[in-house]
């Protein structure tokens, strides 16, 4: 099979990075879920590269499982949550949009500095993509910090996971299909538990704003 062009890989990484940035900017929960689905689709395409380069049943199973969990099961649960609790506009942040954008820009710029230079030795020619995936990780972490809504925080964690997966792929850190399957299964269980937990929290507090949960400590 013909190898995939580096430009395609870079494009996919840009898509992953952009999704993380737009996750910060969107005000609707449903849009945030859609952005996560788009980001996951890009990650799934990236996973296809080794799957089609060296086809094996286990690798394909891992890919199918990833697609199923990230593109089907996760949105199903999240949209169900939004529908059940009418969470259309429940996106509140600690920082306003201009400050958020500034910090995103600073984080992205930081990943291009000398601090990350040693990491580029890991990437075989794809150092830009690698640094973009690091930026995705940092920005996803910031998403979890900046958002007050539990659903947004969950999406931030999943976006972080997507960033780590893409980083591992660009850094050439080989993952066995068994491990990939295990991680996917892990994510599935996590999504189920987190969704159930969030529903319970909503029933108790009438909100998914984590600042409202301070009463838990009382």
């Amino acid at each position: 099979m013909r190898p995939i062009a580096p430009q395609t890989l870079l494009f996919l990484e840009i898509a992953i990075f952009s999704a993380a940035v737009f996750l910060h900017l969107t005000k609707k929960n449903s849009s945030a879920v859609r952005l996560y689905v788009a980001q996951s689709a890009a990650v799934s395409f990236l996973l296809m590269v080794p799957a089609f380069a060296e086809p094996s049943a286990l690798l394909l199973t891992a890919l199918v499982a990833t697609v199923a969990v990230k593109l089907l099961v996760a949105p199903y649960f999240f949209f169900g949550l939004i529908r059940r609790h009418r969470l259309r506009f429940s996106v509140s942040t600690y920082l306003n949009t201009p400050v958020t954008v500034l910090i995103i820009a600073a984080l992205a710029a930081f990943t291009q500095t000398e601090a990350f230079r040693p990491l580029t030795q890991l990437a075989a020619g794809g150092d830009r993509s690698l640094l973009l995936s690091v930026a995705t990780i940092m920005i996803s972490l910031f998403l979890i910090i900046n958002r007050k809504g539990a659903l947004s925080q969950m999406l931030g964690i999943l976006s972080l996971e997507n960033g780590i997966v893409s980083f591992a792929l660009f850094a050439g850190l080989e993952q066995s299909p068994g491990l990939q399957l295990g991680i996917t299964f892990n994510i599935l269980i996590w999504i189920i538990i987190a969704t159930v937990f969030i529903s319970m929290i909503y029933r108790q507090f009438g909100s998914l704003d984590v600042t409202a949960m301070k009463r838990l400590t009382e």
Binding site: I144, I145, N146, V210, T211
Partner: peptide, 12 residues
Amino acid sequence: VGNINVYIGYIL
């Protein structure tokens, strides 16, 4: 402080 955002902030 009991706020998950702050804890993730520490990590970052």
